[in-house]
Nucleic acid binder design. Structure first.
Lengths: 155, 155
DNA sequence: TTTGACAGTTCTATTTTAGAACTATAGCCT
DNA sequence: AGGCTATAGTTCTAAAATAGAACTGTCAAA
């Protein structure tokens, strides 16, 4: 596969995989959602090699997921802030956290609990239909080719 | 990082990344949701090398995402079917498809449209709070360490 | 008996990643 | 001034993963 053009495939899943589909990127984004913003912060909490961290941050900036914002002039220093495009990855992260909670847990219980400030309760993320609000299940979804494609390819 | 023990980290995101966090696995799962079940089917639609496909299918079976079910006795042939654990990955896939639709599109429009059989409408997947039903946003979620962890690490 | 379908395995070459050391700028301390 | 520390990288070699192609084994159909 040509990973360098995966983001141009006529499949929205492929395009997303082109951005977050490697071993480190999702873990870096997890740190972003936990308010980590600086090179040393990512490096020390993830134990990622400095070389790869540098590469991944560049890639995320290139894709418009992070913004590189100066926070010191001399010496020039930058921090990495989620853009709106980056913030919109939240449902992906939460879906993955929830699946991990449900299916990869051990006897110790969940590593983290999530509280919804709006209602004050501990919750789980649930995926629903934008039109009727019902919980979504794979078997209730029918896929049609859209204008960006002839034959169906992605789920 | 020790990728071989990532599934035991005290972080549900890491544990999920251990399973689906590589270049091919999500694309293989996409095919599964499109009803592809056989080795040659995956290989021809993905153009993945046979070696890697074989490895990834084994890994997915080992993690209980796919079941290897015989469909022919002589010669012995198997197909790969999503388990419930695998079907539960659907929200992750849909969240990724939706993000791709929203942020990685081109002038041709969406590659695929999704129809919810339950209500008959074309829809987008939306992530909501299991308790109050409101749409979830990162800034409205507070993270607490749970029983499986001392200090907070994941979003 | 030969061909073809299917589900892999094995091999070498290339690319990616790990791990450690090195560079560069500047503030602070003595 | 001289040395220490903090930050944000870059550069190097070794190890691991992936690509690409060829090969194996089983059986059915021609």
């Amino acid at each position: 596969m040509k990973w360098d053009t995966l983001d141009e495939e006529p499949c929205s899943l492929s395009r997303t995989v082109a951005v977050v589909g490697d071993r480190w990127t999702l873990l870096i984004l997890r740190e972003c959602f936990l308010r980590v913003r600086r090179f040393e912060g990512f490096q020390s909490s993830l134990q990622i090699t400095r070389h790869l961290l540098s590469e991944r941050l560049k890639k995320l900036v290139r894709f418009g997921i992070l913004r590189r914002v100066p926070y010191s002039e001399a010496p020039k220093r930058y921090e990495y802030i989620l853009t709106q495009k980056g913030l919109d990855l939240y449902p992906i992260i939460m879906a993955m956290v929830h699946w991990g909670d449900a299916h990869m847990g051990d006897e110790r219980g969940r590593p983290l609990l999530h509280e919804h400030k709006t209602c004050g309760k501990q919750f789980d993320p649930v995926m629903v239909c934008s039109e009727c609000g019902e919980v979504l299940h794979a078997k209730q979804v029918h896929v049609h080719p859209g204008p960006g494609r002839k034959e169906a390819v992605a789920g």
